[in-house]
Design a protein around this nucleic acid. Structure first.
Lengths: 358, 358
DNA sequence: CTGAAAGCGCTAACAT
DNA sequence: ATGTTAGCGCTTTCAG
């Protein structure tokens, strides 16, 4: 009978490991309001003594707020949703396998973390499904990757909070739309001009689709050709690559067979450029001696490959950071000055393109 | 006066865009329980007519549950936390820049998505901070990357739910600990034996630390040397690389100057191997003619580089998927058969190591 | 300076 | 087969 348990003394260290405001208030003999006020630094109307007592208890019992409760009460979540329209056939459904995406999401994650937000990634081929997940978590803001105009409507219909697009292109310049992108058009335009200046006239374009970003890159490519008076046959000269594991080999067989007709191929990404070079070399075709290949992105694939790949530089990490910056501005209710940021794209001349003039 | 507003008719489509169970119940003239039951498929005791009415309303008003409320009521979150002890100096604090990590996290994301869970990433240099974030969200389970023994204690103290480690090594074989890792030791052991068989005797090891995974790889390396009677001087022959942007150049200067003393360098990752090769070549030292270099990981860096890099293969995506599988088993209360999965590591012989016997 | 109480949206035990 | 109700942990208004 030595020990007497006092029902009013709650020592949570031994009961459960997650203490609540109510419990702390009870222990300290005060109201939850006061505790809550101290937690939130609303201490204008709290006595110094109380503040210290509460803070000590918070510390001692290792108080961690229950964020679900907080979200419910405040109707906000501190979550930023990152939604990606994906293609299952690409990178075997592993979204971060693509070095571009990896670096971009990494940049977003870093920026979000430094601003006190949490990141939740939603990936789907289906926009409906994306919308479901976004709404479910009541994210405070949204980052949208690889979204097209029509898809955007569906999302906007149901998600009303701040939204920033990354790498999107829309038909009409919609006024209040915030996008962070790249000078894709100019990138391939300059790159292609460079190829032409090296004496290339038979140039193919390789991609796995022709919408959004890739479409812009294709347009820039075509423009350079046009200006040089070179005729491009979209049926023949657009090398369509099917990236799914099952079709990959056949796809490269077709493309490589086709390559005799060209002196150069512009690829829509470094990944494809490097892959193509390897496939070509495996078939005894040497780059740049037999054929030239250029890429886009300037990530370590093109940088560290030998021959180093001529490509267009971009900084995905910066893209992500800027997008986050814009989004947080919007969440805080500040005005956005630049609705459309287009990061510069710069041609990086390296060794995978041969100068035919020499 | 034409329109009469009936206070009991709530048409949420025009009021707010997030309908609640209560509102649906009100409109349909039934209780929230019934609606909730239909939502959760507990329809054993609900009439067909009611079910249909509810489902129609759910559909029409586009009901999306408020997950905070659900989490609060059920004390679960459908969130899986992925916590990483990071180093700010590595990859400029962009965790996903490392192709290994990118692919691993991508694999985790994919597996989680396919099992109906949401992923939240917590990254910090500071374990205390990691624990804070983990507790905050009340994650249903935890995946721990790059965590050491001492750090694990701190986490376990506060987080009691299912936890799976990825690539961790612990001093004592703690019985109930679930880990998914790789045969790191065997990997470098076999790799180094291969180098020795090629006639190399002066071999350095390059890494940015010597704990956890890297320590195991180092041990395997040493073992192979030992067995061949080669003496390794940890002071001199362990090439310590400082990866921060500021120190990178100087670090490579030192290492490259040092390289004359060796015929081969074993690097702890493909990234470092490829970087080293480029740095060497920039200084006029040719691989593999002047010196041989080997890597670890077998990602596209080693595969697509020229010369293609001799390395040790692993499958990070699979690692992630297996870890998720284990974790979900634990969450569902099933027994775990294999507490420690060590994926096989296989030497990939390519062109960056010279055979000195010929 | 402090406290009582309502309410955020949902679940589940317990009626009926 | 359906409804009532308490409660999850926190915030916030309003009263003292």
């Amino acid at each position: 009978m030595g020990m007497v348990t006092n029902a009013f003394v709650i020592d949570v260290r031994e009961v459960s490991f997650m203490i609540t405001i109510k419990e702390i208030a009870q222990m300290l003999g005060m109201s939850t309001t006061t505790v809550s006020n101290v937690i939130h630094g609303k201490t204008k109307e709290v006595s110094q003594a109380t503040i210290e007592k509460v803070e000590a208890a918070l510390e001692e019992y290792n108080y961690i707020p229950n964020i679900s409760a907080r979200n419910l009460a405040q109707n906000e979540s501190k979550i930023i949703g990152v939604a990606m329209r994906s293609r299952k056939d690409k990178y075997d459904d592993n979204a971060l396998k693509d070095p571009f995406t990896g670096e971009l999401i990494g940049g977003i994650e870093k920026a979000l973390r430094h601003s006190g937000y949490y990141m939740m990634i939603y990936i789907s081929e289906d926009v409906e499904e994306l919308v479901q997940h976004i709404s479910l978590w009541n994210a405070d803001g949204l980052l949208l990757l690889g979204i097209l105009g029509e898809e955007w409507r569906k999302i906007k219909e149901r998600y009303k909070k701040p939204t920033v697009f990354i790498d999107s292109y829309f038909d009409k310049e919609i006024k209040d739309l915030v996008n962070v992108g790249l000078q894709d058009y100019q990138g391939t335009y300059e790159l292609t001009k460079y190829l032409i200046s090296c004496g290339h006239r038979k140039i193919a374009f390789m991609a796995d689709n022709c919408v959004g970003v890739d479409s812009e890159r294709f347009k820039g490519f075509c423009q350079a050709l046009n200006e040089a008076g070179i005729i491009f046959d979209p049926k023949k000269d657009f090398l369509y690559h099917r990236p799914s594991r099952a079709e990959r080999k056949q796809s490269y067989d077709e493309i490589c067979n086709h390559c005799n007709d060209y002196t150069a191929v512009v690829c829509v990404s470094d990944y494809y450029a490097v892959s193509l070079i390897n496939e070509l070399e495996a078939r005894g075709i040497s780059v740049p001696d037999d054929i030239s290949v250029a890429g886009f992105d300037d990530n370590y694939l093109s940088q560290k490959h030998r021959p180093a790949v001529t490509t267009v530089h971009q900084d995905p990490e910066l893209k992500g950071e800027l997008a986050v910056k814009q989004l947080i501005k919007m969440i805080k209710g500040k005005r956005i000055k630049e609705h459309s940021i287009m990061l510069p794209a710069e041609v990086m001349v390296r060794d995978s393109v041969k100068n035919l003039n020499k």
